[in-house]
Design a binder for these strands. Structure first.
Lengths: 103, 103
DNA sequence: CCTTATCGTAAGCCATAACTTACCGTAAGT
DNA sequence: ACTTACGGTAAGTTATGGCTTACGATAAGG
């Protein structure tokens, strides 16, 4: 549904890399931040974007926040892309049809 | 393979919309440009990005260039996303395993 | 040839977004 | 209560990228 947010969320390299880290292993913010050359607030901002895109979700554990994958965002992109195979083939068939009519 | 270029190519709204138009129907540059509120050179630049991401390919017809869908880029994104289901599940299982060991 | 149509590229401008430092709130430990 | 750990948010800076105008290159048509 919100495939646009999910796609632009994964467009940024460090944010995509962050998402991959979370996919490998759910983790908290500080622990994720020290795996990147950017500051912790930068990671927080990236996580906010990923969360709004429904690519990750949080699980609160005391003062820590464990981020883990949310499959909703991934599914949104996937179904968006799947829509193209049908559409593309349909449009291509229609185009052949049209060219035949225009002989 | 080059999923990163494909993803960031589809991140821009007008470029994604342009890609959708081409998916509906292969078309030349000028004809595509007049369907958008931006200038023709802007469309050319978008097409260049889409082409480098292997989302579209060109077919030269005289002085015109017919742009049509290239499925390589779509396939690249799709397989990148598919890689996550396995990885995510594997990582999740590994996490459970780890927590058990840490009892 | 000369003109016209079509399109790519270069240079520059401007808006957005990624990053930094600084600050604040909250939860847990002593 | 005080301190410490953890992390979100605000404000400001900088870099990236999308847009425009101007120009050049090529193919078709008369």
């Amino acid at each position: 549904m919100a495939y646009d947010k999910a796609i632009s969320a994964l467009a940024d390299p460090t944010r995509r890399s962050l998402f991959e880290k979370i996919a490998e292993r759910p983790n908290n913010v500080a622990s994720l931040a020290q795996q990147f050359p950017v500051s912790r607030p930068a990671i927080s901002q990236h996580l906010k974007v990923l969360q709004e895109a429904q690519l990750v979700k949080v699980q609160i554990a005391g003062t820590r926040r464990i981020y883990e994958i949310d499959h909703v965002g991934l599914e949104a992109i996937k179904s968006y892309l799947d829509g193209f195979w049908n559409d593309a083939l349909g449009a291509f068939a229609a185009e052949i049809h049209k060219q035949n009519r225009e002989h």
